[in-house]
C-alpha cells in the first residue's frame, strides 16, 4: 500500500497540498484522503479547500448514518451513492483539468470540500 496523507479536517487541521504542485500528472503524487462524516443530519467537514495536482487521486473516506448522494462537480462529473451505516467507505476521484471542483452533499445541501486543482 502506498502511504497516504491523512487530512484530519474534523479537527480543523489541514495538511493538504503536500503532494501537489510540480510534476502535475506524474505518478509520484500521493492520493489525498479526506475523511467525511455524516451524522445526525450534519456533515463534516464543510466548505474546506484542499489543493490537489492534476492527476492526483482524491479519496473520500465516508462514514454515514444516512443515505445521501455526493456530487463531484468536476470534468467529468461524478456521483457517489452514500448508504446508511457506511464505515470509512472509499470513493475516489482523479481531477484531470485545472480549476475548482466542489464536492457537495445533495441531501444536506452543503459543500463539503472544494478541490483547488492546479496544473
Amino acid at each position: 500500500m502506498r502511504a497516504r496523507i491523512l487530512v484530519a479536517i474534523a479537527a480543523g487541521v489541514l495538511l493538504a497540498g503536500c503532494g501537489s504542485s510540480s510534476g502535475g500528472a506524474e505518478e509520484a503524487a500521493e492520493p489525498i484522503v479526506i475523511e467525511v462524516s455524516i451524522a445526525d443530519g450534519t456533515i463534516t467537514p464543510t466548505n474546506e479547500r484542499v489543493e490537489v495536482g492534476v492527476g492526483q487521486e482524491v479519496v473520500a473516506q465516508v462514514t454515514s448514518d444516512a443515505e445521501d448522494e455526493l456530487h463531484v462537480h468536476g470534468e467529468p462529473e461524478a456521483t457517489w451513492a452514500v448508504e446508511a451505516g457506511m464505515e470509512s467507505e472509499e470513493f475516489s476521484y482523479t481531477p484531470q483539468i485545472p480549476g475548482q471542483i466542489a464536492i457537495e452533499s445533495h441531501g444536506l445541501h452543503a459543500t463539503i470540500v472544494t478541490l483547488v486543482v492546479t496544473p
Partner: peptide
C-alpha cells in the same frame, strides 16, 4: 451559474 461542473481557478 445554473450549471454544475468545474469552475475556474
Amino acid at each position: 451559474h445554473g450549471l454544475g461542473g468545474q469552475t475556474d481557478l
